[in-house]
Simulated assay, not measured.
Amino acid sequence: MTALLLSLHVLAAIVAIGPITVAASMFPRYVRPPGEDAEAPPERDRRQVAALLHRICRGYTVLGVAVPVFGVATGARLGVLTDAWLLASILLTVAAAALLTAVILPGQRSLLDPATVSESAAGGDTADGARGEVAGAGTGGADARGSAAARLAMTTGIFNLLWAAVVVLMIVRPGSTTGV
């Protein structure tokens, strides 16, 4: 049973957390003003990609709840719930989850702000069904949007580093006989 729980924990981490880290890391690129890049995709395409990446992050966040559930179940089976490495992993996981739900997802949503959405047919549909344009598009808000995207990219980097630290703790398990 322990092997099954551990397998489900690792599989859930790969299937759920992997897509979040990739999609969240790509998102800021598609909401930044294109600047001088002549090869940047058209604004409508960038909006659609950004909306799709946000939907991926939201959807896999729900699936990601399985990771700590299977992790705690595995830890209980192994009798390691009070080990320092597992407690540190839990704290890092809580910090990563808080960043995702309190900063990254709302930050993405604000960059796809429906308050600035135009109801005109010229705005078109985004990938998540909203109509119109990315916040600040076509206005003087390009600098603000670029700054918000940069802050979001930094926060996403921290989120990814937290998960990398959890992975290292799960593999090395300080103090264990199987640790490196």
Score class of each variant (00 low, 15 high):
103 V>G: 10
114 P>S: 15
83 D>G: 03
119 E>W: 08
160 N>L: 06
143 D>I: 11
58 R>V: 14
123 G>M: 08
28 P>S: 02
142 A>M: 07
119 E>L: 09
55 R>P: 01
125 D>N: 09
53 L>S: 04
28 P>G: 01
33 P>Y: 07
124 G>D: 09
107 G>V: 12
94 V>H: 01
105 L>V: 13
152 L>G: 05
86 L>S: 09
74 T>S: 15
130 A>K: 12
100 L>E: 02
100 L>N: 10
105 L>S: 11
43 E>V: 13
135 A>Y: 08
118 S>N: 10
26 M>W: 09
144 A>V: 08
35 G>N: 06
130 A>F: 09
127 A>D: 15
113 D>F: 06
137 A>K: 05
137 A>W: 14
134 V>C: 12
100 L>A: 12
96 A>R: 01
46 R>M: 00
129 G>V: 02
52 L>R: 15
124 G>V: 02
122 A>D: 15
38 A>D: 15
154 M>G: 12
94 V>N: 04
153 A>C: 07
29 R>I: 03
138 G>E: 06
105 L>G: 09
130 A>H: 13
148 A>Q: 14
158 I>F: 03
147 S>G: 12
47 R>A: 15
131 R>S: 14
66 A>F: 09
149 A>N: 06
156 T>K: 01
26 M>A: 15
54 H>W: 05
27 F>D: 03
126 T>V: 00
109 R>E: 08
143 D>N: 06
75 G>N: 07
148 A>S: 14
155 T>C: 12
63 L>E: 01
68 P>V: 08
98 A>F: 04
128 D>P: 08
57 C>L: 07
143 D>Q: 11
35 G>E: 10
149 A>C: 04
144 A>H: 08
71 G>H: 03
153 A>R: 15
95 A>H: 00
124 G>W: 11
124 G>Q: 13
30 Y>G: 01
89 S>L: 02
120 S>G: 14
156 T>Y: 00
67 V>G: 04
125 D>Y: 11
129 G>Q: 04
79 G>P: 04
41 P>Y: 10
80 V>G: 03
59 G>S: 02
45 D>C: 04
65 V>G: 15
56 I>R: 02
30 Y>A: 04
108 Q>L: 11
91 L>M: 12
108 Q>I: 09
102 A>T: 06
88 A>K: 09
92 L>C: 04
151 R>P: 00
154 M>L: 13
77 R>A: 11
138 G>K: 00
147 S>Q: 14
155 T>D: 06
50 A>P: 06
67 V>Y: 09
99 L>R: 05
66 A>I: 02
41 P>E: 13
84 A>C: 05
81 L>Q: 11
121 A>Y: 05
110 S>D: 10
124 G>P: 10
131 R>G: 10
